[in-house]
């Protein structure tokens, strides 16, 4: 059986890749994919912890998180489309009408 620490380690690596992607990449869609990657890293650790504790809570939470991620994707992509319509770009460096 694979020990819990391996799963948690993989989850940390995936989460870090996601964070770095959000910080480094400039394309809104790629940033959004990196956020999804972060959520999936969290899901992995929920499932792994649930298995090692043999409790069902973590597994159920993952289902809820996937639902939330789907809802967020629907709204998020709509927002990205609307910004593309008004600006003609989804590069976050060029979306700077409001000063940061």
């Amino acid at each position: 059986m694979i020990p819990l620490s391996h799963f948690l380690g993989l989850s940390v690596i995936l989460f870090t890749i996601g964070v770095l992607g959000v910080v480094i990449r400039r394309n809104a869609i790629v940033i959004f994919m990196c956020i999804e990657l972060m959520l999936n890293a969290v899901n992995l650790s929920f499932v792994a912890i649930a298995r090692s504790l043999s409790s069902l809570d973590g597994q159920v939470i993952v289902l809820l998180v996937m639902t939330v991620a789907a809802a967020e994707a629907a709204v998020g992509l709509a927002i990205i489309i609307s910004i593309f319509r008004t600006k003609g770009t989804i590069n976050v460096d060029e979306i700077n009408l409001l000063k940061w």
Partner: peptide, 11 residues
């Protein structure tokens, strides 16, 4: 500005 606000808030 409004579209941009939604975009930043969302990401």
């Amino acid at each position: 500005q409004s579209a941009e606000a939604a975009f930043k808030y969302f990401l």
